[in-house]
Design a protein around this nucleic acid. Structure first.
Lengths: 149, 149
DNA sequence: TGAAATAACTTGCAATTTGCAAATATAAAT
DNA sequence: ATTTATATTTGCAAATTGCAAGTTATTTCA
């Protein structure tokens, strides 16, 4: 019987590969890191640089440059916060939204393809389990910084 | 209700952070990539460079150098294959085994800590589900190269 | 008020990591 | 034998990383 770690390691590896493969959209060829960045901006409401960097566990200086390159690609917009001018607020450009949703679709398509090898009940159980697990990891403050979500 | 992708994205991110945090053992400070490498050598029986690189989806030239650095750290041993002298077989040194199992323990400890916020039944269900999911991804050849395991 | 401390973000720089193209060395095929 | 294919390594140039230090804006509190 596999240990939990083995199960997660294999799954993580595969999902990592998927992440690599799935984030080329049209002309844009994003890295997995950039894809995560886009995703996080997409799902949160006008977050600051600081916030996103911390959520993703990325060094803030590295993050600053990652954002710069996405701005240059016209996927991300940086808006100065009117109430605190040290802060920049991040959002997606229309093009960025399109790329983000396309990546999302590609990922879901692949996942559904994998799910087609499972019964409907098994899929539902899996998704419910992962949801619970994410919540559990959120409560756990042991090893790595808790990431809200 | 979250899409499958959202659930997996959050989980993947968190497990990625865990991977980063959990692979420092004693003096050795490994990257997540090196930890994956160690794990894969550990679980397979005297694999060749080529095999491991492909399993991990790593470019072979990058992989060659990653192995070199692990050899230098005295965690991995490269043995020329007697039946085909182009091939090098990879294995863990005693020290490498120790590091690999220590990482494994650390990961399992953290996972168990997270599991403590779930019922026993929920944990069992989660693990069974992931096992099924891994098998399903193995059958799916759609997007990213299938990874045996 | 107005210096000193703190916070958000950026840049300099040096080290590491990456992948393509080309090289080496061995094996298989014809 | 010569060509072709396979496994691994090296050269090199580009991209990515993180620390230290810098800039600009805000807070603190004497």
């Amino acid at each position: 019987m596999e240990t939990p770690r083995e199960l997660f390691q294999i799954m993580t590896r595969r999902l990592g590969l998927l992440n690599k493969d799935c984030c080329s959209v049209g002309g844009c060829n994003l890295s997995a890191a950039q894809s995560h960045l886009l995703y996080e901006i997409y799902r949160s409401h006008n977050p600051s640089m600081q916030q996103v960097a911390e959520t993703l566990g990325t060094d803030i200086t590295t993050f600053s440059r990652q954002v710069q390159s996405l701005v240059k690609m016209n996927l991300v917009k940086k808006t100065p916060d009117p109430t605190d001018r040290r802060v920049y607020t991040l959002s997606l450009t229309p093009e960025g939204k399109m790329v983000a949703t396309t990546i999302d679709q590609q990922m879901n398509e692949y996942l559904n393809e994998a799910f087609s090898h499972m019964s409907e009940f098994e899929v539902e159980t899996l998704l419910r389990s992962i949801k619970l697990f994410n919540e559990a990891m959120g409560k756990s403050s042991n090893c790595c910084a808790p990431v809200k979500g």
